[in-house]
């Protein structure tokens, strides 16, 4: 299996403040990898850094390589990135209400991506391809939807449009940043299904960012757990979700289990995610961790066969042998 995306030691900094540190991940062709963590753990920044879309004032370090492009995407300029974005790698955003231009017709927005990357040279051809694509993503009466403006569609329909735009040029890598968080549960399932089918049909790599563990369990093969801007645990979904090693992962899983309560109250991870830059030195989780000792004051080293499998914890949860 060839790696479509390979990030090594990826970091995001503003000034001398590190927001994301030492993220190493690979996503292979046809593979579906989840990136989970609480809000503020650096998931979205990681995604933006991979696409080279960090806002002004933030810069990335490390290396990001896309299979088949010789250049390192970190530090590449717009002229190098623009031909890749939307063509080789594309992105689905969280908020379907704002991810579409309110002044452009749906069909034109879908066709735009294809015209940009010369999938179609003529506007009319791109338009009819856009209608086909809208049909593909399950939009009812796609020809009418193509002529509509974004505000005329519902949230779920808009997210289908966003997905259609992302899939328009058959990308090798699709990054989804909480694509279903803003949607109703019933619509969620439809959009998830559409994304997984779209990715499978193109044999593309999927990096799926969410804080919803249930979504990860249904969509992904492998999962990376992120906290405080670092990857704290990684592995196969079944492995990580049934036998978590890192204390943060086990806390996250316990908090997601609605059947387990503590005197009728839902379980939570004590404390809250610190402000960016206010994470403790050493293990980033130690100020919220019940098992923390003075040994956690130095950065725990990675325990595992490779960066895709393992954890970074001094006091891992014991696994029954």
């Amino acid at each position: 299996m060839s790696a479509v995306l390979k990030a090594e030691g990826l970091g995001v900094h503003t000034g001398d403040l590190a927001l994301v540190q030492d993220v190493t991940l690979t996503v292979g062709r046809g593979e579906r990898v989840g990136l989970i963590g609480e809000s503020g753990s650096g998931k979205s920044l990681t995604a933006l850094a991979l696409m080279g879309l960090l806002p002004e004032g933030l810069h990335a370090t490390g290396s990001v390589r896309l299979d088949g492009s010789p250049a390192d995407l970190v530090g590449a300029d717009e002229d190098e990135l623009a031909p890749l974005r939307g063509k080789r790698m594309s992105m689905v955003f969280q908020e379907p209400m704002t991810a579409l231009n309110p002044t452009m017709r749906i069909g034109d927005q879908v066709a735009e991506g294809m015209l940009l990357h010369r999938a179609h040279r003529r506007r009319a051809a791109a338009r009819s391809a856009a209608v086909e694509l809208l049909d593909d993503v399950g939009l009812p009466s796609p020809a009418e939807a193509a002529r509509a403006y974004p505000h005329q569609l519902s949230g779920g329909q808009r997210q289908r449009v966003v997905a259609a735009i992302a899939l328009a040029n058959d990308p090798d890598l699709l990054i989804c940043d909480e694509p279903t968080t803003a949607l109703d549960v019933t619509v969620q399932a439809l959009v998830l299904d559409l994304i997984t089918r779209g990715v499978a049909a193109r044999d593309a790599a999927l990096l799926f960012i969410t804080h919803d563990l249930g979504v990860v369990a249904t969509v992904c093969d492998r999962v990376l757990v992120m906290y405080g801007g670092r990857i704290v645990e990684a592995g196969e979904v079944a492995q990580v979700f049934t036998r978590p090693r890192h204390r943060y992962t086990s806390g996250l899983l316990a908090a997601s289990d609605l059947a387990r309560t503590d005197d009728g109250r839902l379980l939570t991870i004590p404390g809250s995610v610190p402000q960016a830059g206010a994470f403790p030195a050493g293990c980033v989780f130690r100020n919220r961790c019940a098992a923390a000792t003075s040994a956690c004051e130095t950065l725990p080293s990675w325990v595992g066969p490779d960066p895709e499998h393992g954890h970074a914890c001094v006091h891992p949860v014991e696994v029954p042998a």
Binding site: L53, A82, R85, M91, T98, L116
Partner: peptide
């Protein structure tokens, strides 16, 4: 600062476009 501009960049639009 809106998401659709970021989305347009993610789709490969250049600054002039």
């Amino acid at each position: 600062s809106t998401e659709y501009v970021v989305a347009a960049r993610a789709a490969g639009r250049r600054p002039v476009g």
